[in-house]
Amino acid sequence: MAARILRHALLLILAYYGLLLAGAVLRFEALPDYARFYPWAENIRGILTGTPSWRDALLIALDEPLFETGRTLPDYTIAEWSLTIVPDKLAAIAAVATLLAIHWHLARRSCRLGAAALSGAGSVASALTSATLGWTVCCSTPSWVVILAMLGLWAPTAMAVESYGPPITIAGLVLLGAGVVLQVRANRGDAQA
């Protein structure tokens, strides 16, 4: 059972990043022209030794990229758009994928509408705010608000709501967890009946 849940979670993680990449390719009508794996461990070592404050070092380290792919602007060396994988967002997506895989496994016997609604809403909220797309219009910083700008929201308005991302991610994970708990209780009740 645990191996199946882990396999489904890994597939969900791959599907999530695949959909982000596909969305960017479709939106900008251009395939990526670069892909880069970063020397993450070496970069972390440099951050930890070169940053006087441990708190600052930790915050910087969490945003240190693992991988990036995207499309560069013609005649420039900057990315027009990019998809970046960073540890803190990857951890959030891994949590969403694992909880969803658990919920799906539990719901195969009998799915409860309330549990499914909580899990669905929580996963959408957390997945949206864990996106790490970059676009030159939005200062090229990998962020969830790039999706909003890509969908047509005025870039300054999208950037103005960026700080709401972490609370939305946490609230989404709480909703998703509550959905799993409700499904577990429903399954126990069905087993006792």
Rank of each mutant, 00 (worst) to 15 (best):
S143Y: 03
T72P: 09
A79W: 13
P167M: 02
F28A: 02
F28I: 04
A61H: 11
P74Y: 08
I47M: 10
L83D: 00
P39M: 00
A57I: 03
W135M: 09
L118Q: 01
R188Y: 14
F28T: 07
I147L: 13
L118W: 04
L153V: 13
F37S: 12
Q192H: 13
E29H: 06
A107S: 08
T84A: 09
P65R: 10
R188H: 15
G177H: 08
W54H: 11
A9I: 09
I102Q: 02
P87C: 02
L173C: 02
T129S: 06
G70Y: 13
A155N: 08
L176K: 00
A178W: 09
T69I: 13
D88C: 06
L106T: 08
L100I: 08
C138V: 14
Q183W: 14
E80P: 01
G172Y: 05
R112S: 12
L175P: 06
G177E: 03
D33R: 15
L31R: 03
L148Q: 01
A22T: 12
G152K: 01
A125E: 03
E80C: 05
W54V: 08
D75G: 14
G177Y: 04
W144K: 04
I147P: 02
P65Q: 14
L99A: 01
N43S: 11
L182A: 15
H103P: 11
Y76H: 15
A2D: 14
L58A: 12
L73T: 14
T84K: 05
G18N: 03
Y17R: 06
D63Y: 08
T77S: 10
T132V: 08
V96D: 05
L10W: 12
A117H: 01
A131L: 08
P52A: 07
A79R: 12
D190F: 10
H8N: 04
A24Y: 09
G165E: 06
A191S: 14
L83G: 02
E42P: 04
L176M: 01
I168H: 05
A127M: 07
Y34A: 01
L148H: 02
L21V: 00
A35Q: 03
T72N: 12
V181E: 08
V181N: 09
E80H: 15
V146M: 07
G122L: 08
L14G: 05
Q183S: 13
A95L: 15
R4Y: 05
A24I: 03
V124W: 10
P156C: 04
L19C: 09
R36G: 02
P167T: 06
L62C: 11
N43T: 14
L14D: 12
E29R: 13
R7Y: 05
H8C: 15
E162W: 09
G120S: 11
T84L: 00
G122M: 03
R185D: 13
A116Q: 07
P65D: 13
H103M: 05
P74E: 00
A24T: 01
G189F: 13
I93E: 00
R27Q: 04
D190G: 00
D33L: 14
T132Y: 07
V137Y: 00
L173Y: 10
I85A: 11
